[in-house]
Design a protein around this nucleic acid. Structure first.
Ligand SMILES: [Mg+2]
Length: 266
DNA sequence: GCGACAG
DNA sequence: ATCTTGTCGC
């Protein structure tokens, strides 16, 4: 038995905050990409130029129940038009750092970076034009969640998608829920997340019609909130956008295969 | 001191 | 995040 304990002292916290503030200097919160978001309009001729958004990446990490330090990271590439998975990349690793709210990137970013690097080094033709991340971007205590962190490190446009709200600036999940349940808002599928300070942190989105539980979209890197919302919308077959959903599903399947294949179905 | 706390 | 089968409903 090895010792996987990890102690995060005040020094570590201070250090990590400095890293976040430092990397945040490079953060770009507006559209900074060459391609355009193809219209969902079917009337357009197949002008699949390279100037259109074609390949969307999704990343997620799954863990072993017994040993939460063992993880499978997945990078999935999806065709922007069909949402079909055209490529997948996995890594099984032992994570050195446990999860601390507000510091998810220090746990997950390194392995996700490796996956992106694998594709980049091999000059893979499906290397993503944008990355969707399971975790917040700007919607973060210091405005620099995993999606921002990863985006800056790989220098790709990124979008943060959370399945739960990380309470920030007076925003709460119950507050959002009440707002969505209000009769005058029953037709709204998008609400802007404005904190008590007046800052816009992202948006709560009903990705599925009539859905009670929204997803939380926030800017990662090199993209505006408006564009982020457009991309997320075109990826939502179900509540969780397809690139992230597939990365989630496939990384979990990968881990279950390790625990012993059970094809014994007489 | 207490509660909150992405994945 | 993970432990988990069936079940109810569109
Ligand atoms: Mg996940």
């Amino acid at each position: 038995m090895e010792d996987h304990s990890f102690y995060k002292g005040g020094d570590t916290t201070e250090e990590w905050i400095k890293v976040q503030e430092s990397l945040k200097q490079k953060l770009v919160l507006e559209d900074c990409f060459a391609w355009t978001i193809s219209s969902p309009d079917a009337s357009s001729v197949e002008n699949a130029t390279e100037h259109n958004l074609k390949f969307i990446g999704g990343v997620d990490v799954s863990f072993l129940k017994d040993d939460p330090s063992m993880a499978c990271a997945a990078l999935v590439i999806v065709d922007a038009k069909t949402l079909d998975v055209v490529h997948e990349e996995f890594d099984l690793v032992r994570l050195q750092i446990p999860y601390f709210p507000g510091f998810l990137a220090f746990r997950e970013a390194p392995i996700l970076l490796d996956l992106l690097d694998k594709m980049k080094q091999s000059a893979h033709p499906f290397y993503p034009q944008i990355l969707m991340v399971d975790g917040n971007g700007l919607l973060h205590p210091r405005g620099f969640g995993l999606a921002c962190h990863l985006g800056v490190l790989v220098d790709l446009p990124t979008i943060g998608v959370g399945k739960n709200l990380h309470h920030v600036d007076g925003l709460t999940q119950s507050g959002v829920k009440k707002f969505l349940e209000a009769k005058e808002n029953c037709d709204k599928d998008l609400i802007c997340l404005v904190g008590r300070s007046g800052q816009v942190w992202g948006a709560a989105m009903r990705s599925i019609h009539c859905s009670t539980k929204p997803i939380y979209v926030s800017t990662g890197h090199r993209i505006s909130l408006d564009s982020s919302i457009k991309v997320v919308k075109m990826c939502c077959r179900f509540r969780v956008p397809e690139p992230i959903r597939q990365a989630d599903i496939r990384s979990r399947v990968f881990i279950q295969k390790l625990k012993g294949p059970s094809p014994m179905h007489k």
